[in-house]
Design a protein around this nucleic acid. Structure first.
Lengths: 193, 193, 193, 193
DNA sequence: AAGTAATCGAGACGGTACGTCATGTCTTACC
DNA sequence: GGTAAGACATGACGTACCGTCTCGATTACTT
C-alpha cells in the first residue's frame, strides 16, 4: 500500500518543460527567459509550471540537472600522484568553464543562488557539495600517502584549489587555459605540502 | 574657462537619486529595486534617471561608489614581513565581506556584472583593478625581498590569495572569521615561496 | 419495468450540489459564483456537475426550482371580483419581488436568460409560462363575466398587468409597495374594460 | 490658473477604445467580450483602459453612448392628440427594440446594470431618466388638455406605457410589431383616462 | 457471490483572461 | 534646455476558472 505523493504528474509535460527551458536559456539567456515563453514553447499551461516549481530559477536548475544526467560517478581519479591528478582535474575544470555552452547557465546559476535561498540549498546539496566532497576524499587519500601536510584543513584546501579558478572565471580576470590550470595546480600543491 | 560637459545637470536631483537608490537597495534588495521606486523616493521624474544612467545597475553602482567616497588610498601596508601583512590584509577583507552592510550590495554587484558588460568594465576599472594592482605591487616588493619565488606569475598569485575567500563568501561555504583568514594566508604564503 | 433513465445517479451528490449552489448564490452572487466553488463546497468532483448540467446557469436554475418546490398550485383565486383579485395578486407579486431573498436569484435568472437560449426555454416553460397562463385563465373567466372587453388580446393584457411591475423592479425605478400595486391594478383594470 | 484634473488624456486612444469596444460587442456579444481584445483591437495598452474605466461594462456603456451621440433632443412630439402621439411613439420604440443592432447591446446593458451599481446610476441618469422625463412632460401636457385623468400618478403611468413593451422584449414573449404597439397604446390610453 | 460497468471524489491538464506592475519613450508645463 | 509629473504601448507577472481528461475506489446491477 503505497502513498501517492504528488498525485499523478504528467511526465510528458515535465520533459517538455525542461527541454523548452534549456533551449530558451541557450537562446535568450537567463534574464530574458520568461515562464510564459517556456510554457508556450513546451505547449503547456503556465499553471502546470507554477504547480511544480516555485520559481524560474528552480525550473532552469532542474533543466540543467536533467541535462547533466545527475552525473553519477563523482569519484575523482587517484593515480597516487597528487600533482598529476590535480593538474588533470584543473585542466578539465578550466575547459568546462570556458565552454560557451556552460558559461551562460553557469553564470545564471551563480547569480540566481544569491537571492533564492531554496535554490542555493538545492545547488549546494546536489551539485557543489558532492563535487567538493569528492575532492576532499582525494586529498584525504593524498594525506595518507604523505603528499599533504597533516595539519591542513581540507575544507580550506579545497577552496584554495577551486577558488582561484572560479574567481578568474566569474570576474573574467584572464584566460582559462591549460597553462593557467597548471599554474594554479602548482601553487595549490605547494600550499598543501 | 570651465568645462561644462553635461550642460546643466541638477546636482540636487543627482544626489537625491543616489541617496534613494542606496536606501532602497538596503530596504528591498537589488532584484526588487525599481527605477520607478527610486524616482518616486527621490522626488524626481523617471526621465531624469534615464537621461543620465543607462541601467538600474549603473545607478546602483554610482550610488555605492559615492557612498564609499571613491576610497583614495589603495596602497597596501608594507612592513617588510609578507606573512604578517598578508594575514592582516585577509583579516580585513574577510571582516568586510562578513559585514551585513556589504553583503547585499556586494552580491548584487557580482550578479549584475554577469549580464551587463558596460557595468563589468566600470567595475573592473574603478574598483577591482586598483585593488588587485595594489596587491601585485606588494607582492613585487616581496619578491625583491626574496619572500616570493622569482618564477611566480603575480596575476595568478593574486587570485590564489583572494579567490578562496571570494569563493567561500559567494557560495556561503563556511564562516569568514580570522582563523579562516589566517589559514588562507598561510597556504598562500606556502604557495608563493 | 422501470424507466431507469439516468442509469445510476447519486441522489446524495445531486442534493449537495443544489444546496451548495443555492448557498453560494446567496453569499457571493451569480457572477462571482463558480463551478469549482460549488464542487468544493458540495464535496463533489467537478465532472459530476458537468455530467449532469450543461452550464452554471442550469445548475442555479435547478437549485432555485428545487428550493421553490416546483410550486404546484398555480390557479389564481377567482372571487368573481376582478378588481379585488387583481389587487391581491399584484400585492403578492410586489411583495415577492421586494423580498431580499428573491432579488438576487431573480435578477440572476433574468440576466442569464439573455444569453442562454436553452435556459430561457426552460424558464419560459417551467416558470413563466404557467404563471402567465394562469393569469390568462383568470382573465378569460372575467371576460365571460363581462368585466373585460371582448376584443382585448389576452396576451397583451397579461403584459399590461405584469410588465409595469417587472419594469420598475428590474430597473429599480421606485418602491414596490402596496400603494404601487393598487395603482397598477387600477390602471390595468381601466385598460381592460 | 486652472486645475488640470485628469492630466492630459489621449483623445486618440479614447476614441480607438470606444470604437473597438463597439465593434467587438457587435461581433462576439457582451459576455465573450474581453478587455484584452478591446486593447488589442484598439492598439492600446490594457492599462490605458483600466486607468480610465472601472469595468468592462463602463467601457461598453461609454461606447454605446458616444455612438448614439448623446442624443440631444428628447422632446417628444406633441400634436395635441395623445392617442396618435402615443401610437407613434410606441411604434418607434418597438421598432428600435426589434432592431438587431440594438438587441445585443440593449440586453447586455440591462444585464450589466443588475450587478454594477455605479453603472446602473449612470444608466438611469444619462439614458433612462431623460427619456422617462420626456414622457412625463408629454403626459403633463395631456393632462392639462383633459386627456388624462387628474389623479393619475405620472410615474406609474410611464411604467404602464413602457413596461409591457420592455417585458415582452426582454423575455421574448412575442413579436414586436406595429399591431402590438397599437394594442399597448390603446390599453394605456384607456388606463390613463 | 463474483463480475462488470457506470459513477464517484479528486485533481492535473492546456487554455484564456484577469488585474497589476515595471519597462523605457513620449509629451506637457514650469522654471 | 533640464526638470517633475505622469500618460502611453508593451509585455510578463502570478492567479482564478474554464471544460476535458485520467485515475483508483465505490457501488449497484447483472449473471
Amino acid at each position: 500500500m503505497t502513498v501517492k505523493q504528488p498525485a499523478r504528474r504528467s511526465e510528458r509535460s515535465k520533459q517538455a518543460i525542461l527541454a523548452a527551458a534549456a533551449e530558451l536559456l541557450a537562446e535568450v539567456g537567463f534574464p530574458k527567459l520568461t515562464i510564459e515563453a517556456i510554457a508556450a514553447r513546451a505547449g503547456v499551461g503556465k499553471q502546470t509550471i507554477y504547480r511544480w516549481w516555485p520559481s524560474k530559477g528552480a525550473v532552469v536548475f532542474d533543466a540543467l540537472l536533467s541535462r547533466m544526467g545527475e552525473d553519477g560517478d563523482l569519484t575523482l581519479p587517484d593515480t597516487g600522484d597528487l600533482a598529476a591528478d590535480l593538474r588533470l582535474l584543473l585542466r578539465g575544470t578550466v575547459a568546462e568553464m570556458g565552454d560557451p555552452g556552460f558559461q551562460a547557465p553557469g553564470r545564471a546559476m551563480t547569480t540566481e543562488i544569491q537571492t533564492d535561498p531554496a535554490l542555493a540549498r538545492e545547488y549546494r546539496e546536489r551539485l557543489l557539495g558532492p563535487n567538493l566532497e569528492a575532492m576532499k576524499t582525494r586529498l584525504r587519500s593524498a594525506r595518507e600517502a604523505g603528499q599533504v601536510a597533516a595539519d591542513v584543513d581540507l575544507d580550506v584546501a579545497v577552496e584554495v584549489i577551486f577558488g582561484p579558478v572560479y574567481y578568474r572565471w566569474l570576474l573574467r580576470l584572464g584566460p582559462l587555459d591549460d597553462a593557467y590550470a597548471d599554474a594554479v595546480a602548482g601553487m595549490a600543491l605547494s600550499a598543501l605540502r
